[in-house]
Design a protein around this nucleic acid. Structure first.
Lengths: 343, 343
DNA sequence: CTGTTAGCGCGTTCAC
DNA sequence: GTGAACGCGCTAACAG
């Protein structure tokens, strides 16, 4: 059929002037109709509408934004990885909340690479996105200072802005860690291991919470039970193997993020270990595992909603300043965290 | 500190002219330096570089794109939902491949709402994204005809374009279903149920493959074992409950997508059912469940890579026409699919 | 009610 | 090697 030869030059898009010509009016009148502004007679408007339909005119939003010095009604969200369910749920909640404001949420992953994170943030800003939701585990955000000062709507989520002032939705990482550790202590555990990632403020806070809590209960921290590893599944698996294979293994493990957990659980299972296990961050598969996984979780939907409110405020200029909200973390017992230490 | 009063008007961004003035040159020279084009003396260039640094100049990509009639170097990907791991993996692979071409991949979810899907696609086009990766389960894409004809780079992934011609990376849904069903038949199962979503071409194909395969093996299809439900976790759970609670329950279930599976597994577990189970689409938690879940899977990384190649070709105009690639599906036995029927 | 002028920020063209 | 003029597609601010 038309198949082959149709390497037709990408037909130039139809512009507002094409419509104006077709309708025998000026571009301005078309603009008014398109934007629903008054000042166009009913007949003229009808002619214009027809021309728009006939030509399939679609306003070029880039031109509009350029002229009006406004954003593209796009809101960018940058997450460390696309796998961690919590990030997804935050995005879903933010998306729902922002849709009401006519904003489309688009997501991209930084892969925990500070260089890529900065590139993404910069790209989003240069490309005229209206605002940014930044889930960052980086430890230096001073590069954002100029943008922030220029009033760019950037809201931090889950990890705090470091070196700059910016609105943020944070999590009570220490409190969550304390909850997890106290839960295990309450079940009689004394040799409690922790698996934490080497990077990121949240990881450091969770580790600190672990240390504080053990200290507060007079339980010495065995350095051999503190595993600090990169933020990946294989790292979680390896750390778990090292712990479980020890001559004096821990009786419980506190695993501080999703990816590490995703690696740890299969490792634990392979070894048939009866080690108690509590994970930071909830995930769907937690109920599928045997035993189901006890978790400490934040409330991602709330976080997403709150973050949405803050960006909107920032975009509208309603923001009173860099606001900071910390949401609590709670424990959901499901089985793995209630396993007793071996008698 | 500066805190409160700094409701400063969002300082106008610094433009190329500000830099030109600061460096005592024309905007043109600044442009040349920024874009690494020749024709600027070393000293002048140095002065300009300094001014750029000092003022923190960042070129406005919208203006550039408008002038050059090019995209924003953003590639939009629209997925039905943000939970299904396969979509995520396709996105990751596409992202990696497209990064080399200087394209940033941003993702948004349609929620399987055709209206929203169209809105997203339209928005992306109007906003000057360079291309689109569309994972659609809609059954009518004629609204895209004008755009396609204008040479918009849209590549379908996982679901075919309906009513229009467009490049696509597809999956052998029927073949995959056949593989799954034959695997179960080979284990001695005769009462094999299927849980499929009511919407979407892939679902219909998988169901057809199931029917064909049973017929080919002389096994009658019991309509009571064919569950067509909406595409959600709760629907998967309910369908499973209905099946398992029957007086004459199936001895095996073929569950045709991730969300349904995510609902089905807990339901199965609650009931302590020994029903064999094969899922279409792989997912991380499959290895965590007890027993681990046998799946039929496509190769998402390949799909993402291929899709990336097709969009790039379409963007460059290298595309010979609407190409269509179908990737095979293979079975990964893990345990749940090898459960025998009760003797 | 409708049209004209001007310019958003940038890059192409062509002169100097 | 450098800059002035013009226009990408659209709309505010004025005419008429």
């Amino acid at each position: 059929m038309a198949g082959r030869g149709s390497a037709s030059a990408p037909d130039a898009a139809v512009t507002i002037r094409d419509v104006a010509r077709a309708a025998g009016v000026s571009a301005m009148s078309v603009s008014r109709v398109v934007n629903g502004k008054p000042g166009v007679g009913p007949e003229t408007a009808a002619r214009i509408e027809n021309a728009i339909q006939a030509l399939g005119f679609r306003p070029n939003r880039m031109a509009t934004s350029l002229r009006q010095k406004r954003g593209l009604s796009l809101l960018g969200m940058v997450v460390p990885d696309p796998y961690t369910p919590m990030f997804t749920e935050i995005a879903v909640a933010a998306d729902a909340a922002l849709r009401e404001h006519g904003l489309i949420v688009v997501t991209a992953s930084s892969g925990r690479d500070p260089v890529r994170e900065r590139a993404l943030v910069g790209s989003f800003i240069d490309r005229g996105l209206d605002g940014l939701l930044l889930v960052s585990e980086d430890d230096d955000h001073r590069y954002l200072a100029p943008e922030l000062q220029r009033g760019r709507p950037v809201v931090f989520v889950g990890g705090p802005p470091v070196g700059v002032e910016a609105p943020a939705i944070l999590v009570d990482n220490r409190g969550g860690a304390r909850t997890a550790v106290e839960h295990l202590l309450g079940r009689g555990h004394r040799r409690i291991a922790i698996i934490a990632s080497t990077t990121g403020f949240p990881a450091a806070e969770r580790l600190a919470g672990y240390r504080q809590t053990l200290a507060a209960h007079g339980v010495p921290v065995d350095p051999a039970l503190v595993m600090r590893v990169p933020h990946g599944r294989v790292d979680g698996a390896r750390a778990t193997a090292r712990l479980v294979d020890r001559a004096d293994p821990p009786t419980a493990i506190f695993c501080t993020n999703y990816l590490l957990t995703a690696g740890a659980l299969p490792a634990l299972r392979e070894r048939g270990s009866g080690c108690a296990f509590v994970a930071f961050d909830d995930f769907e598969a937690a109920t599928l595992a045997e035993p189901p996984v006890t978790v400490v979780t934040q409330d991602p939907p709330s976080m997403g909603r709150l973050a949405a409110e803050l960006v909107v405020a920032a975009i509208d200029g309603t923001g009173g300043g860099p606001e900071r909200v910390t949401v609590p973390a709670r424990l959901i017992p499901r089985g793995s965290g209630e396993l007793p230490p071996p008698a």
